[in-house]
């Protein structure tokens, strides 16, 4: 029985599809949408911005608000509610670290731009190789 589902999301369409899949397939489960901020960027400015903030939480909330409110409005279409969580650092690492608290991870195959692929690497691959929980990859 799958009762807790983790859906890591970035701002890509692939991530939205993963959320829709989770909402359709695990309608009885408690779904947590997770967004990672402060990920590696061209000159590491995104990570530094968080590290330098007086109040990390406020800045992280701001950075994550677009993706998370989009997730909430998608959930509304399914008359469902989702929990949200914000993590910092490398997306692949952060997702794998959180995955053990869940019965299932639903993730899109890829998101982001070419530079993200180069700088961050293949997040979905890292997750399905290292996640302690079963992983569904959506494309």
């Amino acid at each position: 029985m799958v009762s807790r589902v983790l859906v890591p999301m970035d701002n890509s369409e692939m991530a939205e599809r993963a959320l829709r899949h989770a909402l359709e397939t695990y309608s009885g489960a408690e779904i947590t949408v997770m967004h990672v901020v402060g990920e590696p960027s061209g000159m590491m400015g995104k990570a530094a911005k968080l590290a330098l903030a007086d109040d990390l939480k406020t800045v992280a909330d701001e950075l994550a608000s677009d993706v998370l409110s989009r997730a909430e409005s998608i959930a509304e279409e399914y008359d469902a509610e989702v929990d949200t969580s914000i993590e910092v650092g490398h997306p692949g690492r952060a997702i794998v670290n959180q995955a053990e608290d869940f019965d299932m991870v639903v993730i899109g195959t890829h998101g982001g731009s070419l530079s993200d692929r180069l700088l961050v690497g293949d997040v979905a691959r890292r997750v399905f190789r290292r996640s302690p929980a079963p992983v569904t990859v959506i494309r």
Partner: peptide, 22 residues
Amino acid sequence: EEIPAAADLFDPATTGRVIVMQ
């Protein structure tokens, strides 16, 4: 946990990858 975990934001592998790409 309120203080940004430096290890999470700037772990050597992540930063190293960015430098390699540059």
